[in-house]
Simulated scan of single mutants.
Amino acid sequence: MSSRELVILGTSSAVPTRHRNHNGYLLRWDGQGYLFDPGEGTQRQMLHAGVSASDVHWICLTHFHGDHCLGVPGVIQRIARDRVRHPVRAVFPASGADYWRRLRHAAVFADTAVIEEHPVSGELASTGPLTARRLSHPVESYGYRVQEPPGVRMLPERLAAHGIRGPEVGELQRTGSVRGVTLARCSVPKPGQAAAFVMDTRLCDAVFELADGVDLLVIEATFLSGEQALAKEYGHLTAFEAGLVAAQAGVRRLVLTHFSERYTFADEPVFLEEVRRSFDGEVFLARDLMRVPVPRRRR
């Protein structure tokens, strides 16, 4: 299995700070790189993180607030400059197509034909392994889920009981039957791994659906609970609410990010304390250039 990990390029919300760049997250997933919400400065953060333009296969924008998209011009121009050969799929809310075009052609540069545009609309949209769901924010915003197809886990004792060994095991997996023995008799279902990316939103059904059972959830925690009214007004989550989502959805590994500039590293224990009021699983408080592996498969 190829390496699956999250490379965190930026963790601030509307205003970057001395220690936190605007948003930017690269999910490495089986040879594909999903770049979510490249905010201002993402191209430089990629250099610091050892991420090249060739590592990007998808550019996924949740919405068109600046901290989630102002890095697009630099990233695309770098893709062109470095002569990336593979297709790069750009996924973004269809309602923001005018903003996309302005970002896409923000300056004079030698253009590239590898960018494939995939605007999404409606409540549910899918593009290959990527699913988008409409969230609750003052502007149209989408969350994303990357899903591996389900598979099966072979049971050695069942294979041995039926005398299936060597090349016959591969044949059973490919065809579903060997000498009258079906795959179902020698295996059990194995759910595919999944990761979800949820940025600016209030609590809504789509948040829980995107997070349902995922191995890795990257989610905004813009405010602490003392700013609950402000969070609701501006369409954001608190750390407690992010933990609530993780607990109810059965998330394995939780990554909190998109912190308001009003908070510093000294506030991290308070964020963790709030999350622990609702979620007792594994938690990472994101910092720029941190790497978070996707948890190993459940057996």
Rank of each mutant, 00 (worst) to 15 (best):
A194P: 02
A53I: 09
L272P: 03
G166T: 08
V214A: 04
E116Y: 00
G39F: 15
A247M: 04
P119W: 04
D288E: 02
R28F: 01
L254N: 00
D37E: 05
A194F: 02
G163Y: 04
V255T: 00
L256F: 07
R277P: 01
L155E: 06
L237V: 01
M1A: 14
R252D: 06
T17W: 01
R158M: 07
R291P: 01
A94T: 01
Q45I: 02
G250R: 10
D111L: 06
A184H: 10
R174S: 08
H19N: 12
H48F: 14
G213I: 03
Y99W: 14
A221R: 04
W100G: 02
P138W: 00
G10T: 11
D215I: 01
T42G: 07
A106G: 07
L289K: 08
A97C: 03
R4E: 10
L216S: 07
E157T: 13
E40P: 00
P156H: 05
Y263R: 04
L27G: 11
L237C: 12
V255A: 03
V152Y: 11
A229F: 11
A110G: 10
V218D: 03
G281N: 09
H105T: 09
A106V: 00
F92M: 04
G243Y: 08
E116P: 00
V270P: 04
V7P: 06
S278N: 06
E220T: 15
V245K: 07
Y99C: 08
Y263C: 11
G10I: 06
V214N: 07
A286L: 09
L172I: 06
R101A: 09
V294Q: 07
E140H: 01
Q32A: 08
H86E: 08
A231G: 11
V56R: 05
E233F: 13
P149H: 03
T131H: 02
V181Y: 02
I76S: 07
P293H: 05
E268N: 11
T131V: 09
R296K: 12
V15F: 10
G41F: 13
E140F: 00
G96K: 01
R174Q: 13
R101G: 00
L47F: 11
A94Q: 14
H137M: 01
V139F: 04
A161P: 01
R202P: 00
R277A: 11
R83L: 11
P191C: 08
E168L: 13
G170C: 03
F208I: 06
L217M: 12
R174W: 06
R18M: 11
V169A: 12
D267P: 08
T222S: 15
C186M: 03
G33P: 05
L9H: 11
P293A: 08
A231I: 09
A246Y: 04
C204T: 07
R102L: 10
S187F: 03
G74H: 03
E140N: 03
R179W: 05
R253C: 09
S225L: 10
P156T: 11
P191N: 07
H236K: 15
M154F: 15
W58Q: 04
